[in-house]
């Protein structure tokens, strides 16, 4: 009955309560201040709390930590995998773009070459044609010249003959060749 003084403080509070048939030593007053129960409470607290600590540190917490760790690893792994796939996709897109650009360049090149070749061919053919034409032209001109000179040479002959005949008919006497050619040359100038 070490707590009678503590108990006497509190009896006032619950003295009004109905008298209850308590256990053998229960009526010592305010139970939380009953030091008789301290030893037992401390012992059982030590046992149970010790047991709880042991279960927590050896079984429960490592297990939960393991689960959380697994999840974190899995998420990190999945994220890394997704990242890797994304990079692969990016690389594929880049390769495609490059191939496309190359193909476009090559197409440009081919088109350009073809155009150049065709242009050169056309040029060459036009040159040939022009050359042929100018050759024909010069040939024609040469022939015209020939004909002209032939014609001209015949003109003086005809003129000489005609003049000789005319003079002979008029005066009855053929003119000398030198007089005649001088007169014709003068007339033809």
């Amino acid at each position: 009955m070490a707590t009678t003084q503590a108990a006497s403080e509190t009896t006032g509070e619950h003295a009004a309560g109905t008298e209850v048939p308590h256990d053998a030593h229960a009526s010592v007053g305010f139970p939380p201040f009953n030091s008789e129960t301290f030893a037992s409470q401390l012992l059982w607290l030590a046992i149970t709390f010790g047991l709880l600590y042991w279960i927590m540190s050896k079984v429960a917490l490592p297990r939960i930590a393991g689960i959380l760790e697994d999840r974190r690893d899995r998420i990190a792994g999945d994220l890394a995998e997704a990242n890797r796939l994304k990079q692969e996709g990016d690389a594929a897109v880049a390769a495609y773009e490059q191939a496309l650009a190359e193909a476009r360049n090559r197409a440009h090149g081919i088109a350009h070459d073809t155009r150049e070749k065709l242009k050169a061919e056309t040029e060459a053919r036009r040159g040939e044609a022009e050359e042929g034409l100018s050759k024909k032209l010069s040939e024609a001109e040469a022939r015209i010249g020939e004909i002209k000179s032939a014609a001209l040479s015949q003109v003086s002959e005809i003129a000489t003959d005609t003049t000789t005949t005319l003079v002979e008919t008029l005066i009855g006497k053929a003119p000398t060749k030198t007089e005649l050619s001088k007169a014709i040359d003068g007339a033809m100038k």
């Binding site: 008789e36 129960t37 030893a39 037992s40 409470q41 012992l43 059982w44 607290l45 046992i47 149970t48 709390f49 047991l51 709880l52 279960i55 927590m56 079984v59 429960a60 297990r63 939960i64 689960i67």
Partner: peptide
């Protein structure tokens, strides 16, 4: 006096409930 009391019983119950909650839950 080191008796197993109602207080001790509920300490044991506390530990049992905690352990079951954590271990069976996982």
């Amino acid at each position: 006096d080191l008796s197993f009391t109602n207080s001790a019983l509920f300490m044991v119950a506390t530990v049992a409930v905690t352990a079951l909650f954590l271990i069976m839950g996982t």
